[in-house]
Design a binder for these strands. Structure first.
Lengths: 331, 331
DNA sequence: GATTTATATTGTAGCGCTTAAATAAATTTA
DNA sequence: TAAATTTATTTAAGCGCTACAATATAAATC
């Protein structure tokens, strides 16, 4: 049987309440008993039972992290940011993924809040629909939304519009008269923002937006990129530059297929990705891309939520981080 | 305030104990009250408080997963396997990484067991020293060691010796007279096994083992591979094949540097990696490598531990999974 | 030195649930 | 129909901790 407060109390000749106060650094404890209690606690190698504590305090000391899919490098990198923050986090991180689950994000959230008494949630998802976000709000458990701006909840996100604008402008500056754009098919906020950035850059440079230059892919893997390449060749063989807000893996697919078909990248086709995943440095030519500060997003998210939980912050807060345009060989 | 057993009990005109028994599907409850209670529970949208339950049952319904480093694709992929198992897991997964932490794995384990009353632990690590593993045993919380064979604890691992033997034999069969080998510098079991597999293959093919053909790298990133390439060129320029049990990223580094120096892969230098990470398909030439069944390892681990926790299994169990040799372009 | 104030400790209740023992109701058996 | 057995429900205690009110002790004020 594990050592309890009571065991310590008996040995120290005090009451369990006193021991509790010592352990929790409460005021109004004499130096003498404090020392005595701590000594005995150490001797017995006492560990407080956080479950019992949780029941008494109505806190679980746990933060839930809901991710769509652990197969995504992007998500994993944010998760890594959450876990590797410098701050000494006294909360346990419980991990939940929603892919292949029958529950929606908001149902899961509700269950975690009520059943597990989770203290706070970090939700990494660009896809949760606006209506569902209200559930998050209502449950009265702090929640930080990562990867998507949102005015209902706290959020951490990047300036996707600027990121796309930078990339597009770069390509135009390089002399490309028409720049294709490959976006993810799901209608989510970041995609929309990136498309707007693309459009803005065109306009700023006096180029008319052309709908037929925008290609859509339903998934964001290498294979999709390979298909898109063929599509581009078929629909607009004169294309010399393609910006791929859909993500690096798609961009890599385009490069792969281009090479296979003896189209030289970047000479005959310049390619710019989005995300800056590890694979961007592996592909040859290495991929010019828009870096998202993924670690930083995770870091911010965990810090925001801990601040909230410790009452150091309140009110809705938003943190916009910035993308960085990384020039490599592909454009 | 959340709905409690008591609320339901009052509304149903029974006692909290009865409600508890209904919720937990205990026998000796009349159909009538069962139905009545369940109906009310649904109406009030009752969620059992897992924390309170945990205190009463001395179980947390949580499984801890200890990983060395979330930056490793290998580890993340196993984690993904854990989370994506088909089985309907009723346990929460709590994630802990040990990189940059002052606690050792065994200290962390002990703390989780005592403080958090974690029901079971999955430890992904090839590096924990033998002595420490005893602590895991002693704490009396089931623990599955992943990625390393071990006779003290349950374990899930791959047959690394066979994997390395397959790879080496393949290279010899292709006509390479001397095969270099690049291993990770840390003295861990998988590395040792792979080295033994390499040696076995040499012996089986009548080639004498030559210590000077074994290169060591202290880290397993692309950069290390690039350096190793130079080392090979300097020490043994006649080398035509290199097997890299240190991992795919190192192998990719070797390929990158080879290409930079106009050494054709595989014609002038055949390269075989280990792990089959996503990047293996991105590099060109694509990387021939030894696939570790990472998802499967995670899947097995979670199933083993849940079996244990539900009393369906006992005694130490070991599961050996098999590597698969994947031929691509680099060898 | 009596009174107020501050400091230290204890007693008690309760967090929301489970569980074993006790009781009550329904059913069977002799 | 009373006794024995089975089935259904309740009572009560407890999991290990915190927190608040109450008490006891020490220090400060007049």
């Amino acid at each position: 049987m594990p050592v309890t407060l009571k065991d310590i109390a008996e040995k120290a000749g005090v009451t369990a309440a006193t021991v509790s106060m010592v352990i929790n650094n409460k005021p109004n404890i004499s130096e003498a008993t404090r020392k005595k209690v701590l000594k005995i606690a150490r001797e017995l190698s006492y560990y407080p039972n956080v479950i019992a504590r949780g029941l008494a305090t109505r806190k679980s000391n746990a933060i839930g992290v809901i991710v769509p899919n652990l197969a995504s490098s992007f998500v994993v990198r944010i998760l890594q940011g959450i876990k590797s923050t410098n701050r000494d986090i006294d909360y346990t991180v419980q991990l939940f993924d929603t892919i292949g689950q029958k529950e929606s994000e908001s149902q899961l959230f509700q269950r975690l809040a009520r059943e597990r008494r989770i203290d706070g949630i970090i939700l990494i998802s660009a896809l949760v629909p606006e209506e569902e976000l209200h559930v998050f709000k209502d449950e009265n458990v702090p929640c930080i939304l990562v990867a998507r701006e949102c005015d209902i909840l706290d959020s951490v996100f990047v300036n996707n519009m600027q990121g796309a604008r930078d990339a597009t402008s770069y390509l135009i500056q390089k002399g490309h008269k028409s720049v294709a754009c490959v976006i993810c098919d799901k209608p989510n906020v970041p995609t929309q923002d990136r498309l707007n950035g693309y459009k803005a850059a065109l306009q700023e440079n006096g180029i008319e937006y052309n709908d037929s230059l925008v290609y859509k892919t339903d998934d964001v893997a290498v294979d999709n990129g390979m298909q898109i390449f063929d599509q581009i060749r078929a629909q607009a063989p004169e294309t010399t530059a393609v910006f791929v807000p859909a993500g690096d893996m798609v961009a890599i697919g385009i490069i792969k297929e281009a090479k296979k078909q003896n189209v030289i990248v970047p000479d005959s086709l310049a390619v710019v990705g989005y995300d800056d995943l590890p694979a961007a440095e592996v592909i040859e030519p290495t991929l010019t891309t828009v870096r998202q500060p993924k670690l930083e997003m995770g870091d911010y998210a965990i810090n925001m939520i801990v601040d909230k939980l410790e009452g150091r912050e309140s009110g809705i807060k938003h943190k916009e981080l910035h993308t960085k345009f990384i020039v490599r060989e592909s454009a």
